[in-house]
């Protein structure tokens, strides 16, 4: 039983990371019906921009805690610029095309951005380790844990809470829910769907970039970091039910806890955990845990 506490701690930390990384994808899908493969590239660009800025910040000997501001600034900057460019420059023209063509368009964007990142930042890894140590460590049961990892849980709760509040307690959010529920009805009610899309995509892109920017201090930012993020986000979002924020949270917790349990109890299965859960959930609930039933069209 003494493995239970570390499993819970590691699992929740990892779940929080998964949720932050995946929530932008589910938001964009929920509103726009776009499964954004370029999500992984936005994650990577966010990480690179944050790592570059953090590196400069510490080279200039500026106040250490200011680096946390940089993380959020990079996420907002990358999300706004890339999000709006992609939505206005590409996705806008694909409204009304079928889902697979749009998925493939974002796959093309992913291919292009992979090389663009390589051309800008080169092949060397960018470390941005300083903020990771700033928050210190805590000892639980004689084992040291990094407080930065715990801050992920706080961030995930804040992001999730803010999304819930914005959707359910604000006028804008309620309009958005109408769009999510029935796009045509929303248009008929006079909601300007065309304005909702760029805003949603920019926010989704910011969340993707935030995932990358906040991860930058824990990892070594290097080519290809976005590829695995795509598949992880897909899995979390599909398990939870595409377009459902609560679902993404539950999906992240399920994957996170199971992965931690596997690492502690049966390391050889770590690679399969996420796909096994996705398969099981889809077998039991063909549309994910929190997907609303679709109206049958006769």
């Amino acid at each position: 039983m003494n493995a239970l506490v570390p499993i819970l701690i590691d699992g929740l930390n990892y779940s929080a990371w998964l949720f932050i990384v995946a929530v932008g994808m589910t938001l964009i899908f929920g509103v726009m019906r776009v499964l954004n493969i370029a999500h992984g590239s936005l994650y990577a660009v966010g990480a690179y921009v944050a790592a570059t800025l953090i590196g400069r910040w510490f080279d200039a000997d500026l106040p250490a805690f200011g680096s946390f501001g940089l993380i959020f600034a990079s996420a907002i900057g990358v999300g706004l610029v890339l999000g709006l460019v992609l939505e206005q420059g590409l996705l806008r023209f694909l409204h009304g095309r079928d889902e697979i063509a749009i998925v493939l368009a974002t796959f093309a964007v992913f291919l292009i951005l992979e090389d663009v990142v390589l051309l800008i930042w080169g092949t060397d890894a960018y470390p941005a380790y300083q903020p990771y140590g700033l928050l210190g460590t805590s000892s639980i049961g004689g084992i040291a844990f990094t407080n930065y990892d715990f801050s992920l849980v706080v961030l995930a709760l804040v992001v999730g809470g803010a999304a819930w509040w914005a959707l359910n307690r604000t006028r804008m959010g309620k309009l958005l829910l109408i769009v999510i529920h029935d796009r045509e009805m929303a248009q008929a009610l006079g909601i300007n769907v065309r304005l909702v899309y760029p805003a949603t995509f920019a926010i989704g892109a910011m969340l993707a970039a935030l995932g990358g920017a906040y991860s930058a201090p824990m990892i070594s930012v290097s080519p290809g970091i976005g590829v695995d993020v795509i598949i992880l986000s897909f899995a979390v979002v599909v398990i939870g039910g595409l377009g459902s924020i609560e679902g993404a949270m539950i999906g992240a917790v399920m994957v996170g806890l199971t992965r931690a349990a596997s690492v502690h109890l049966a390391p050889q299965f770590e690679l399969f955990v996420i796909y096994a859960i996705m398969t099981l959930v889809l077998i039991v609930r063909p549309q994910g845990l929190f997907m609303r039933a679709q109206a049958r069209k006769i």
Binding site: L90, A101, L104, A105, A108, F110, I112, D115, L118
Partner: peptide, 20 residues
């Protein structure tokens, strides 16, 4: 050789946009 995915991705985008 260092940036072939840009070309491949652009070709795909062009196909989706202009040759549906």
């Amino acid at each position: 050789p260092g940036a072939w995915r840009i070309i491949l991705g652009s070709a795909l985008l062009a196909a989706i946009m202009f040759v549906p």
